[in-house]
Design a protein around this nucleic acid. Structure first.
Lengths: 208, 208, 208, 208
DNA sequence: CATGAATGAGAATTCATTCAT
DNA sequence: TATGAATGAATTCTCATTCAT
């Protein structure tokens, strides 16, 4: 039902591009009539929205692999961006839908449903906050730091996905991205925690 | 002529959105027949392309105000991103066309015309390279540093423009962005220049 | 349904000419929206193709009246061309579509669907072959003889239909055609059959 | 001038097809403005007409090579069709324009200008008449015989040119055509001249 | 002789959507 | 739940032609 419609839609996004993905085509792909789709989705953009939810579910799963892995706060912080980028490059269609496409934002606004993306954002913010508390990051405005991190990785992802990096040789691209991410990480060096949070500040990282 | 068509098109982008901007409407807006447009532009996307060129011309002008202002390399470096962000927020439609929109990229690829954007990219890279030479930046991979800087500001700009920052209160947004940019700048601290260029490298910043 | 569309199209061919027959007009003629047509035909040329199929069905029916009429091989042979010409002159629009118009051929090639016309061609060839076997025709290359016969009648039909016979007074035309057909028949005189088939070879025609 | 326009038009017919040949394109091909064409031709179809005249001039030249070659009447008669077919297969675009295309006929009718084609037709008729006179052909209705000959070769040419012979293997085609032409010639066997040419009209042809 | 500018008409096609059944 | 039929609106684009300059 809804599942089949969504996956047919994603298929079309991949194979034919977003513009070519009409309700007619989706219906044809699953052997139904256009009208039938409207039993499950009120709107074409509702399909988009559902797929974007799926995307966030996937991304959420991926990011939450950081939990309980016995990672240090700094490691969690550094891996966070890497995982985000991995998601983006491995699921460019999803990523586009979730973070770039106009219509998704319009639909979200229309529904007033911000939770979906917020969960992820909150998770990132939590990691950032924790990192500051642990001295894995210089203390500062959590919101701004979160946004800086996010903007940085989103910038890389969206420039690549929307074909703005053609001046970088394709085979050098992943290196450049990785290297650029390292620059970003450098913006946020691990610190001696200002106020040892919850008696955590252990010996490690003393050198930094 | 072409000017009138472009500005009518930009007008429509603003007022009605991109999808609603058809050749018909553009023609109607300037009191012409659709066919007349085709005397000046071979294609709908040619109009896009022309506007995007205009946008880069504007951005170029703005960025080049950095030249000859007697600024230090570090100042140039830091103001570069600020100017870029200013451009983005003051001309979101242009910015979208230039750095986000799909069709622009497609048209560019079709034409094989990368120069337009490259000029700007080269300018940024030149600033980065110079900054490294002058110790205004840690030495390192110029390409990656350029990309990191660009990605960071593009990330902020595109998240805002494509309405992905609704969780940040609108009136706090500009502060968050400014603050986030400071984080980014911190990634690239001024350094003791490797090879004192033009007798600059003084004692300052020794602590870092 | 499809029937109504086709007959409306034929109507327009007749009344307004082929070039003037657009999907818009067809739709208007049957009181529908252009889009509605596309529920029944994928393409403008699909309509052409359907009509051309109808035409071949008609022609097939007509030619098959030769079967089972107790006709001698020679009679069948001679009447075949007459029926063909009758079809052409009575259904010039169909004939044009089936045997002259460019787009039909293009569509056929596109579909790789040669069967429709082949049925008819095979029928003609069968008649020719049989005629040779029965001595109703000099023995020889069946393919070439079939083609010669077909070309001859097609030539007459298409010259008339495409208005290349204006130098022949209209009221003399049918006589000229009939007389010309007699010349063609003379090319293929009845013969003493090589191997007397079904004990036919009677004395008649001895004088020739 | 007119020459250049015509040859550009022919070029386009060949390379892009007839439908794609617009006045705009012709103009572009010779580096002029569409409007300029109208200084030389009143109409798009006037160009067609001019080209069709050229075609007839060419065909005329070709057919007139039969004159003065010391050929017997029968030889002239037989070669006439061969030359005609050769012209058709070597200049299919011209042939199409001259003998198949609708618009040419319409323009001719509009102008009331039949002479162009008539010259050729008269030439054929003259050959036929002479052949009869010389006993190179059975005596009979000259008009009908002319038409029969013409229809036969036109049929072959137009079936091939308009792609109705796809059931015949391409490499066999020229053989089939040649063989079919032989059947046609057989329709019109050489005869003992009734009246030994120049000193004519007597008892002969008693056998018929 | 030729341009440049523009018209007006029309082309095929596609789409999201609706609704009675 | 799903279809089949249809709408209505729009889309890009192409064309022959005209005409003042």
């Amino acid at each position: 039902m809804r599942e089949r419609i969504c996956s047919a839609a994603m298929d079309l996004f991949l194979r034919e591009g977003f513009e070519r993905t009409s309700i007619r085509r989706i219906a044809a792909a699953i052997g139904y009539t256009p009208g039938a789709i409207y039993s499950y989705f009120g709107d074409k953009d509702d399909i988009l929205y559902a797929i974007h939810e799926q995307g966030f579910a996937r991304l959420g799963l991926l990011l939450h692999t950081l939990d309980g892995g016995g990672l240090s706060a700094r490691e969690r912080f550094e891996r966070l961006g890497e995982l985000y980028l991995r998601f983006a490059f491995e699921n460019p269609q999803y990523y586009d839908l979730m973070f770039i496409k106009d219509r998704t934002a319009k639909k979200i606004e229309e529904l007033g449903q911000w939770d979906v993306g917020l969960d992820t954002y909150d998770f990132v913010r939590a990691v950032v906050r924790e990192s500051m508390r642990d001295g894995a990051l210089p203390t500062g405005d959590v919101e701004a730091a979160t946004f800086a991190l996010w903007a940085s990785v989103h910038g890389m992802a969206s420039l690549v996905i929307r074909s703005r990096c053609k001046m970088i040789p394709p085979d050098a691209l992943s290196t450049v991205v990785a290297e650029a991410y390292r620059w970003t990480m450098r913006a946020m060096p691990a610190q001696e925690p200002a106020h040892p949070p919850r008696a955590r500040g252990r010996v490690r990282r003393s050198g930094r």
